[in-house]
Design a protein around this nucleic acid. Sequence first.
DNA 1: GTACGGCGTGAAGAACGCGTCAAGATCACC
DNA 2: GGTGATCTTGACGCGTTCTTCACGCCGTAC
Lengths: 227, 227
Amino acid sequence: MSRILLVDDDTQLLRALRINLSARGYDVLTAADGGTALTLAARTPPDLVIIDLGLPDLDGVTVVEGLRGWTRTPIIVLSAREAEAAKVAALDAGADDYVTKPFGMDELLARVRAALRRATAHDAGPAALTTRDFTVDLAARRVTTAAGAEIRLTPTEWHLLEILARHPGKLVGHRHLLHEVWGPAYDTETNYLRVHFANLRRKLEPDSAAPRYIRTEPGLGYRLTPD
Amino acid sequence: MSRILLVDDDTQLLRALRINLSARGYDVLTAADGGTALTLAARTPPDLVIIDLGLPDLDGVTVVEGLRGWTRTPIIVLSAREAEAAKVAALDAGADDYVTKPFGMDELLARVRAALRRATAHDAGPAALTTRDFTVDLAARRVTTAAGAEIRLTPTEWHLLEILARHPGKLVGHRHLLHEVWGPAYDTETNYLRVHFANLRRKLEPDSAAPRYIRTEPGLGYRLTPD
DNA sequence: GTACGGCGTGAAGAACGCGTCAAGATCACC
DNA sequence: GGTGATCTTGACGCGTTCTTCACGCCGTAC
């Protein structure tokens, strides 16, 4: 799991945080002042740093700058200071987030999750919808077969598929589809939907006569079922 | 500069934010409800989203989930709700930050800077893109053949190629390309794209009649496929 | 049984987007 | 002030895509 470096001279708070973070499965390192924080971070690089602004030796902002000199590890700053200038200074020094004391533990944990998610999202796959027979890559705007071959779609076909793919499993009404693709003036042209979905099925469905993914809800609309 | 999508039904606040952000050189889009926010974001992808939780049509968290279905654009949530549960829900839905109203403008701007800084440092991507026939060196602004000979590109050609190379494999829309190279006033001049991409293909593609790397997606845009 | 509405097909012409070429216009550089 | 490169603009042919219509099928209602 992720390693978190905790920097604070308030032993009470340090203890509380350590317990809560450890309980969530995080690997926790602690430092009571800025100097040891910097050397510790250099020796065993953490995945995230939580740092209090009020340290005995260095200013918290200085520590943030020190870290930012060589790493982009997420940094969450804790502080009792409400002053806006302090927040701006810390954020501009390179901090990712600024939490004012007193804070709720759940909130801090959520912010920790958000920061870590961002940092690791790097390696995560692209936003896509996958079925047994094809993959809809929404980010790249591309559809590929399970084997990896590209499926060519016309603009209208893609547009329709995109709308369904953004609401997987959900029913999308005729009006919504027509509105989105053709505009408000085409609310009644359900003909268009039939023609284009027929073409889509021919390209995507293994057996377009018995659609498995692009389902018709008679009188209502269409639905894309991932599996 | 960066494009920011602002979602709020409070016209007062919307106006204040728009003015402040525009003054900092950001390109600001606005939406008054969740539905238009989602379609707007899909049509012209923003670099950052600021969204109020209390919207007339959809719950803010729903909008965050809708965006996270296909993009990792930073999202800053605004809300009058102090409740910790609301913060946790929004952050876990994929939001990057949560700011409680009333907030200081300077703080929000600092958080915007922090979010954008992260995202662009992140997106920097690879410094070069290599195919079997040529190499695009983004750092050196140079294109060379596989043999190492330099390929001379005009400024416009380079600009177009650079945009494609920064999003390898992804479809880049007409509007995005025109916006980036010629500015907002040239949204409909797809003619330019055809001419310049034809020239690019003549210089890069082994057989410009059957393009292998610079692919056309009719009606949508272009795509650079490394192999 | 029959009429009807909704759906899926197929095929036609119209409309559109694309690549190409070539001729000015513009710009940078000498 | 001239020269070459680059960008803009318009026109053309071609292939693709969209629209439109007609037809057959299948349920349900009567």
